[in-house]
Design a protein around this nucleic acid. Structure first.
Lengths: 342, 342
DNA sequence: TATTATTTTGCAAGCGGTTGCAATATACTC
DNA sequence: GAGTATATTGCAACCGCTTGCAAAATAATA
């Protein structure tokens, strides 16, 4: 790396300065769009920089107190399209804003979440995007105290002091449940997601509200706990099937849960939607390819990522901007996994 | 960020030094596992660092010529599981090695690829992982000249001077084609991928080799160009269906292409596998959920990501290590999208 | 044209680390 | 216990860039 190659692309600000006959600070000013620079100087510098193929060293810039143009992204794990669609939106928007993205994966390891946040705060990134973080209380406070810009994506800060982007979970769940009721179902089960996440609670509340509004008594035995993953959903479904009075429909907290449920049903030789209606949540790409195709509540995942970036960008520009909440609309998508019963 | 908070987590090496009564260089040495440090000193420093919650500033470290512990990852776009599975493997392995990942997405914009590589080289990352890069010649040379550690994933450097991880594309395509021939097919079409990618050529060669070995004459009209994406595959399939003598089977360069083909067939009211057999390549998650389930050639995508990281790690440890090639085994996966014909 | 206000520019310090080299402390010999 | 080899530690310089402040250049005013 340190070879002084003749055609070494490691051009520094000093090289540009020397080559264009001005001081390095002037170069710095030009490159940062500082206004008090004579136009001719600016052009000259810009031209030389271009010619020499100068590219700023990010770490040096950030170390010197400027912006690093890097924002951190904390996600649980890159292994399902719920996450990757959000990340795609984030990446897209960040890229448009000429910002770099450094990815931190917690591998669903709670301690790591905290650890990463500390690293990020210590590392002079410009901001942080947290996608469905779990144990937030500890470090959210630290982030706030330091005025470190951050945005929560699909997670809620009960303290109400964080910018966040959410979807209409309650409404989505309400509509899904209502749809099932409309098809004649009365014994409707709900497989929850991770209890640490706000969306789980919000969806559960929507489900209950719909039952109530339509005079269907709420029966706790039909609410079983999942964790947004197939495996756990599989077990949860088995528990439901062991009930004396099996449900006739399952509302799954997300599509992966729905798929896990379908797997369990298949292993019990039950078919969807004949023996059991199923509704998911998210509308990940896979949902359109299950067999039967999954009826679900679409979340605008990519848009959620984009909105998160925008919220962060606003904070970056105006650091005292109060926390803001963006709530995106879900949409009920009818496909083939539900059937009317009598 | 610069607030001198009482509980400011921005602890520097100087703080640790002062607090533990040694010089900052000693702290640096301890933190970097340098050997010539007295055990008692080491412990004392480590203990203080821990207590103060010290976390190294990456940019400073990298600026000072040490390792940055950041590696760059260049990918086309985060929007399909081919990419995300590879990224998952990379992320996993990197995380295990305690390395950070900064993500560069080219959005399939060739100029951006080059631009990003330049940025990366100028930014003192420790290394670079390139997943299916397209226009490589220009910057691969620059990377080599600077001895900048990098690894190609699923792409081949014809100059033979790059470390790369590939899959047995030729063999995979050969087996797929052979399988179709074994089912009695003679008019077997091949929808190619992006011609800039090595895998496309390798698969095409495997397809041709299988035809030849089994005495099936190669007919150029059955090879149509795609680009690894559904849309283009859709059009390519339409072209095949417009032929006087339609093929009875389609071997698609990847699963997305296969799915695009299936969409086109459906729009022609043709059913798979009754009217047309289809084989894909990759075995992305979706392949198991198409209807009918897709017969395909599995690439160990996640493992490819992992291997890429390992190759890079080796280079990081021994910078004169000659370029190495890792070729991972593909595996033919029979599902329901092919049928025997007479 | 001298004087003063305003632009532009350059210098130096510092961001938080790493590292070569010299200085100091400790261990080993005789 | 003096002398020398070896293990530890500290100092200073530097990585590439930003920025406050002062100097130099230019424009405005009298």
């Amino acid at each position: 790396m340190s070879v002084k190659d003749p055609n070494n692309p490691k051009v520094t600000i000093y090289d540009v300065a020397r080559e264009s006959g001005v001081s390095y600070s002037t170069v710095s000013r030009v490159l940062n769009g500082f206004e008090f620079v004579k136009d001719t100087t600016r052009e000259k510098v810009l031209e030389t920089a271009e010619r020499l193929g100068y590219v700023a060293n990010l770490q040096a810039r950030s170390l010197a107190g400027g912006k690093s143009n890097v924002i951190g992204l904390l996600v649980p794990k890159i292994d399902n399209s719920y996450i990757t669609e959000i990340v795609a939106g984030i990446d897209d928007e960040l890229s448009a804003a000429n910002l770099n993205l450094i990815l931190y994966t917690t591998h669903r390891h709670i301690g790591k979440e905290q650890q990463n946040v500390k690293t990020i705060m210590g590392s002079m990134m410009d901001g942080l995007l947290l996608v469905v973080p779990l144990a937030t209380s500890s470090y959210l406070q630290a982030l706030r105290e330091l005025h470190f810009p951050y945005v929560l994506i699909d997670q809620h800060d009960y303290a109400g002091e964080s910018s966040e982007v959410l979807a209409t979970n309650h409404q989505g769940a309400y509509e899904a449940t209502e749809y099932l009721i409309g098809l004649g179902h009365r014994r409707i089960a709900f497989i929850t997601g991770l209890m640490e996440l706000y969306s789980t609670h919000d969806r559960l509340a929507g489900y209950k509200a719909a039952l109530k509004d339509h005079g269907v008594p709420f029966d706790p035995q039909y609410v079983v706990q999942g964790d947004f993953w197939k495996q756990e959903a599989y077990h949860a479904t088995n528990r439901l099937l062991a009930l004396d009075e099996r449900p006739t429909a399952i509302f799954a907290a997300n599509d992966l849960t729905a798929i896990g449920a379908m797997n369990a049903l298949r292993d019990h030789n039950l078919s969807v939607p004949e023996d059991m209606s199923i509704v998911g949540f998210d509308d990940i790409a896979q949902a359109a390819y299950t067999n039967p195709r999954l009826t679900t509540v679409r979340q605008p995942l990519e848009q959620m990522g984009r909105s998160g970036v925008n919220l962060l960008l606003q904070q970056l520009h105006d650091s005292d901007r109060p926390p803001q909440q963006v709530v995106l609309q879900t949409e009920f998508v009818v496909r083939d996994s539900c059937k009317r019963i009598d």
